[in-house]
């Protein structure tokens, strides 16, 4: 049984279509990440789920009940905003207790409950502080505690980590995921950070230009991207344009064996992850001559930037592997295993 379901939901602002008709299912107790570049419509979709925007078309169902016309204050989905939207005129404890006090809960009970929630987000003892006295990470925890106070059926987070520094962001991603698993709330996180989505989500919805490009589990999104956009947006990839021929793809003068089923002469785009390409001396198909342009040592891995006959290629070797001793300007060959090449149709601009 699906917790939350969108059926043909779309949103237009004047003549601009922000979200194309979308069908989505959010499984109960799972964390879904809406992932995409800025302006792709993911926040608009989240706001429609929260009831802060009305869909132009389509319906939103919660446990089979149509809640499309239900206003935001009656849905009571907990939401964490990008800027946290904490009330500066209330203390930390009063912020967390807000939904309870306006809901008619006795003030003392509400404040006790707020204290418990602050303990849950490791902010016990911060209840009397003003919002202005908290750091970015602490504010985010308060925003999470405040959204969870009303025990929402759906928990929504709009770019919750964007205001945090890189280190804190990584820590909070893990903390938030652990908290979500502990509470078992259906959660939807909007993010443009693919690493954040991969870390936290059970399911990722990749969006572009108001359209859903792919819905799948993180590993599937990474290893089996639905199209070139997803392959490009999630992680790194090398791309080559070519034409299908004799069961493979002709890229310039080089023939690459692939597992594609496209018609001969179809224009295609090939993608290969940097860690799936090799600089080695193993015999095999799809060897391309290349010249080392730049070597980048990143600690856990080493990155080789090469210029080949079919275009620039980046190859990654994990630390501890037998890395080829190459320097800038050295000539070598790169092996592109056929099973690692992903082939997508290429749409030429008219």
């Amino acid at each position: 049984m699906h917790g939350l379901e969108l059926k043909g939901v779309s949103k237009s602002f004047g003549n601009t279509r922000a979200v194309e008709p979308t069908d989505l299912k959010f499984a109960k107790g799972e964390l879904t990440a809406l992932l995409g570049p800025s302006g792709c419509g993911k926040t608009t979709l989240l706001r429609m789920i929260a009831g802060l925007e009305d869909p132009s078309v389509g319906s939103i169902l919660l446990e089979g009940q149509n809640i499309t016309a239900l206003p935001a204050h009656k849905r009571k989905f907990g939401m964490v905003f990008q800027n946290f939207a904490l009330f500066p005129h209330y203390s930390v404890r009063e912020n967390v207790a807000y939904s309870l006090t306006i809901g008619g809960v006795d003030k003392r009970t509400a404040l006790d409950e707020a204290n418990n929630l602050l303990e849950t987000v490791q902010l016990g003892g911060f209840g009397d502080r003003r919002i202005g006295e908290l750091s970015g990470g602490q504010r985010q925890r308060v925003a999470i505690a405040r959204a969870l106070a009303q025990e929402p059926e759906v928990f929504l987070l709009d770019e919750p980590m964007s205001a945090l520094d890189a280190k804190l962001r990584e820590e909070m991603q893990v903390e938030l995921r652990l908290l979500q698993q502990k509470l078992g709330i259906t959660t939807i996180v909007v993010t443009h950070d693919q690493r954040e989505a991969m870390t936290m989500a059970d399911q990722i919805v990749v969006m572009s230009n108001g359209r859903v490009e792919q819905i799948a589990k993180p590993q599937v999104i990474y290893h089996q991207p639905a199209n070139a956009f997803v392959a490009d947006f999630i992680g790194k990839a090398n791309f080559f344009d070519g034409v299908c021929k004799d069961g493979g793809v002709l890229v310039g003068e080089n023939f690459l064996q692939t597992a594609s089923n496209f018609r001969t002469e179809s224009p295609v785009r090939i993608a290969i992850r940097p860690e799936r390409a090799f600089i080695d001396f193993d015999p095999g198909a799809n060897r391309v001559a290349a010249k080392v342009m730049f070597v980048r040592d990143l600690g856990p891995m080493r990155e080789y930037h090469l210029q080949s006959d079919i275009g620039p290629i980046i190859v990654e070797h994990a630390a501890g592997e037998t890395n080829p001793e190459l320097r800038n300007g050295d000539a070598t060959t790169v092996r592109l295993p056929p099973d690692a090449l992903q082939v997508f149709p290429r749409y030429e601009a008219a």
Binding site: A50, G51, L52, P71, A72, H73, K74, R75, K76, F77, G78, M79, F81, Q82, N83, A85, L86, F87, Y98, S99, I102, G103, R146, A147, A149, Q150, L156
Partner: peptide
């Protein structure tokens, strides 16, 4: 967003 946050809290 302050008002919107309050609305999502009922």
């Amino acid at each position: 967003s302050l008002g919107e946050a309050a609305r999502t809290m009922g």
